[in-house]
């Protein structure tokens, strides 16, 4: 398996997910190519986050299939990274958090130092390198989580509501960061319930509602003319959940 080989496209075929007798996701089918920034949009409880976890392989679908272009689970894991809504940072310095991810990733020790520095610089955290990760502010923590994910040079970066708990300034910083990462060739797949954010970041939209995928369209089309009633209501800001 060449390290430059691509794991995309990602294909969901009639994926369903059931827990506790409830069907949380039903009959989800789509395909993601490399390139466009994909935003999974929808109201709370639509199953966006669940879809992301399924894609990232943290949980298994109860029906249907999820396929990448590679079947090697270790290779797949090494080419993806995920930033959680509330990322767990290890109880060590910011730099050590990134170094840890790199060491798990199998990066040789002599390369790690430069890559840790690069990741800190990219996320604007250089001055905080030796600060314990747990005492950083919410925005800094989120940036560190992105730095940690980005440092391993993933082909696909999943982000689950990356700015849900942040103020506007911190949100802007994260969005700029996401754009810059996308520009350097990393596939972005993120969830959000924030319409403004979706408008600013999305190239294509996966619109989820009540456990179903209702629309999969280029962002411009989605915002100009949503095809479903639920999407229209969501864009109007009605509470549909």
């Amino acid at each position: 398996m060449s390290p430059t080989a691509s794991i995309l496209p990602l294909r969901f075929s009639q994926v369903g997910y059931e827990a506790g007798g409830k069907l949380l996701l039903d009959d989800i089918s789509f395909e993601l190519e490399s390139g466009p920034r994909t935003v999974i949009l929808g109201p709370n409880g639509a199953g966006k986050s669940l879809g992301l976890r399924l894609a990232h392989g943290l949980i298994e679908p109860t029906s249907g299939a999820i396929e990448w272009s590679s079947a090697d689970p270790i290779f797949l894991r090494s080419k993806q990274a995920m930033v959680f809504e509330r990322p767990v940072l290890l109880r060590r310095s910011a730099a050590a958090n990134i170094d840890y991810a790199l060491s798990i990733h199998g990066t040789p020790r002599r390369e790690r130092e430069t890559r840790v520095e690069a990741a800190l610089t990219k996320t604007g955290l250089s001055a905080l390198a030796e600060r314990p990760a747990r005492v950083l502010s919410a925005g800094e923590r989120q940036r560190l989580a992105i730095a940690r994910a980005w440092a391993t040079e993933p082909e696909v970066l999943f982000l689950d509501e990356p700015t849900a708990a942040l103020d506007p300034a911190a949100t802007r910083a994260i969005e700029t960061l996401i754009c810059s990462i996308a520009d350097s060739g990393t596939k972005i797949v993120m969830t959000t319930h924030d319409l403004g954010q979706a408008r600013r970041l999305a190239d294509e939209i996966l619109f989820f509602s009540a456990g179903r995928l209702l629309e999969h369209t280029p962002a411009a089309d989605f915002f100009a003319e949503p095809a479903t009633g639920a999407a229209k209501a969501f864009l109007r800001g009605e509470l549909t959940w």
Partner: peptide
Amino acid sequence: EYDEQLRSLGVGPARAIPTLLWD
């Protein structure tokens, strides 16, 4: 608390032992 994060990073249970003891 750490389960999903560690699995996302590719940390198996054996590697998680020192990590969680330290944390």
